[in-house]
Design a protein around this nucleic acid. Structure first.
Lengths: 231, 231
DNA sequence: GGCCATTGGTTGAACGATCAACTAACTCGC
DNA sequence: GCGAGTTAGTTGATCGTTCAACCAATGGCC
């Protein structure tokens, strides 16, 4: 995540500081005192706004949920009208973060998902919300490209797979301090997409049913109305 | 990782305890006192064997490096003679761990790779060694299946991709507390493998050069001698 | 307009618990 | 007697949180 604009409000400053420090150090290894120092806030003020350190974490995760569309997805989608290229533009966003940080970048949500004990249900609910928002955005791209993908393909699970590749790829590049593993993973994902779009299952059902009307309406008409829905 | 057999030696008990607790809680959130309690060791003994908490972590990571082949790869490989099925048997090992833990399992190496600051070079060196050992084992399977994969395929990067999918998939299932994301990722990986093995690039170079001897020897002969090397 | 009460926010120290690490004395086997 | 290993406590620092006092702005009342 790019750093958001800094606001002068105390609460916002605390969240900003925590966004950065939880990303950099993780949750357990970030002390409240460190957040206070970064935000230039005293501890009494902290507890005025947040019941606890964990309450701040919830605010941070909420911040990420809100920022997903404006900071991640929309800038990436703006780079291409092609829905599949949009998927890879999202992945390029993470590549950029890796490059900018000398391959020390780790996806903050992924990291917190691994770190926070599973009995912290409220936290995990928000972590899952972040992941679901991410995959839902990818799935809209896959839906827009549905005529290029095999009809038997479950696009929900494919969007999950894209997230899997992003998280796993970022983790590998961070571990190795090289961009190679991330790039390799993205290349394989791209090759998988290419193979899917060239899949014989795809070529078969699209071509024959066209001259024969179907109860659900012609496939091409369905495709057009779906495109209009997305715009 | 399955818990290894417990030994009565103090040093081993400490490592065992740390293996479990670093996996369960992560490094920063596991206190030395907790390790001591679990291992039934006093702190003086701890510092007799280990210079510091981090030195214990290094021993834990070394333990994982040593345990990779006997505890992970060999049991999985024993489940099938087919090299590609062996890859998926390895992934099934992680699935098993997810099922056993109600999807709270997280890959310990992946978790530590995200958690430990990148300036801890010695730790990251051993983390990378763990990952490299893993991908190297997968790559031996891919090499054994090379005649079924496209010749232009970089099997090193494909083994990296398998690791990416494993780490990302485990992370997703842990975050969602469901096996679905992991299973979906593995299904997509399997489909990718199927598409690769059916790839037209594969059918082309294998068939034509056979009746024409080559300076390097017939391809089939090369294949046989490689198989003997692997046994 | 002045005074007072209320409210939201702030300061900065203190609290009890936990942290990683250290230490002196001891025990046991050779 | 010596060395490896152990016991059981201590150390100074840090942890997340609490607390009493304070300040400024606002609104209501006289």
């Amino acid at each position: 995540m790019a750093a958001p604009p800094t606001t002068p409000e105390t609460r916002e400053r605390l969240i900003d500081a925590a966004v950065f420090l939880f990303w950099q150090n993780g949750y357990a290894a970030t002390g409240v005192a460190e957040i206070l120092a970064r935000a230039k806030v005293n501890s009494g003020s902290f507890y005025h706004f947040f019941r606890s350190k964990e309450a701040l974490l919830l605010a941070v995760l909420d911040w990420y949920v809100r920022g997903l569309k404006p900071f991640v997805m929309q800038p990436a989608f703006a780079q291409s009208p092609d829905p599949i290229e949009r998927v890879f533009a999202v992945l390029a966003f993470y590549r950029q973060n890796l490059i900018k940080t000398g391959c020390t970048y780790g996806c903050p949500i992924g990291r917190l998902a691994l770190e926070i004990p599973e009995n912290r249900a409220e936290v995990h609910h928000l972590l899952a919300a972040n992941f679901d928002g991410w995959t839902a955005a990818i799935e809209t791209c896959l839906d827009a490209a549905r005529d290029r993908l095999p009809p038997d393909l479950d696009r929900t699970s494919l969007s999950q797979f894209v997230l899997t590749v992003m998280e796993g790829g970022v983790m590998q590049s961070r571990a190795h301090r090289r961009i190679g593993p991330f790039d390799a993973s993205v290349r394989h994902l791209r090759r998988y997409f290419e193979l899917l779009t060239q899949s014989p299952h795809h070529a078969r059902p699209v071509t024959p049913p066209r001259p024969i009307p179907r109860p659900g309406g012609p496939r091409k008409t369905t495709h057009r109305s779906l495109t209009q829905e997305l715009l």
